[in-house]
């Protein structure tokens, strides 16, 4: 069914800390590894030794923000499915392959029903869905649904591969419907935000904005900036001596 559930018991999702993310891409690799070796069609790579490209469920962009005054700063920006409450990718699906689970709010694709039309990827404003060009099937973040409930793996591993692997502790997983959960408290304390709120998707995943940086700016450059300039000035504007003679002789030729 591609009708969205009226409400979900839980809202499992990620909280991503843009302040601590160092842009190492470990989550990208862990995600690709787990989701290629486990549930569903593998995430293919194409043309690995040429103009390489592949399918990823998680990609990290980097942005520069330049204030009117002071230094620019760089923010690493991981982006995967936000498991929206009002997911436009679900309702557009004609085959029923795309669905949102009423029990935990995870948005999934039933690969046996997907016809690869790509309309759900068009409907997603975040670019969270990619057709795998080899399998011809829509791929997206499953929130590692085959890890988080998996009793065959140690309890510490029962969280999404990206969260488990993040060396900076920039990714957090939990129930955002429960105001007492650790990540709900984190979102409240750090002022977590929705991406593209004007698109009306009501994303579950939240982003923690970078904290304000310290106020030490770039070194002040005024009249003193050329303090070394006298020492760097050319000693002689015109070549003299033997080189000068050679230069003049060559000119005359």
């Amino acid at each position: 069914m591609t009708a969205l559930p009226a409400s979900t018991q839980k809202k499992l999702g990620l909280v991503i800390d843009l302040d601590t993310c160092v842009g190492c891409h470990a989550c990208v690799t862990a995600c690709k590894g787990w989701n290629t070796q486990n549930y569903g069609a593998p995430l293919s790579d194409r043309n690995a030794y040429g103009d390489a490209e592949g399918t990823f469920l998680n990609r990290i962009h980097a942005y520069q923000s330049q204030p009117d005054q002071g230094l620019a700063r760089t923010t690493h920006f991981p982006k995967s499915c936000l498991h929206c409450d009002d997911a436009p990718c679900v309702t557009v699906c004609p085959t029923g392959a795309s669905y949102k689970r009423a029990e935990d709010g995870i948005v999934l694709v039933n690969e046996d029903a997907c016809m690869g039309c790509g309309l759900c990827a068009w409907a997603c404003p975040y670019g969270a869905r990619e057709v795998d060009e080899v399998a011809g099937i829509m791929k997206k973040c499953t929130l590692c649904v085959d890890r988080i409930y998996n009793e065959n793996i140690p309890e510490i591993d029962r969280q999404p591969a990206c969260v488990r692997t993040c060396p900076a502790g920039a990714r957090h997983f939990g129930d955002l419907a429960d105001p007492a959960s650790d990540i709900s408290i984190l979102v409240a304390e750090r002022g977590g935000v929705d991406l593209m709120p004007e698109q009306g998707t009501k994303p579950v995943n939240k982003y923690l904005p970078p904290r304000p940086r310290d106020t030490i700016g770039a070194a002040q450059m005024s009249d003193d900036e050329d303090i070394l300039a006298p020492f760097l000035a050319p000693v002689a504007e015109e070549p003299a001596g033997f080189l000068g003679w050679l230069d003049r002789s060559l000119e005359r030729l």
Binding site: A62, Y63, S65, Q66, P67, F77, P210
Partner: peptide, 13 residues
């Protein structure tokens, strides 16, 4: 991105 000021793409993923 919910970032402030003049935001530009620094690196593609």
């Amino acid at each position: 991105t919910r970032l402030h000021d003049r935001v530009t793409l620094f690196e593609k993923p």
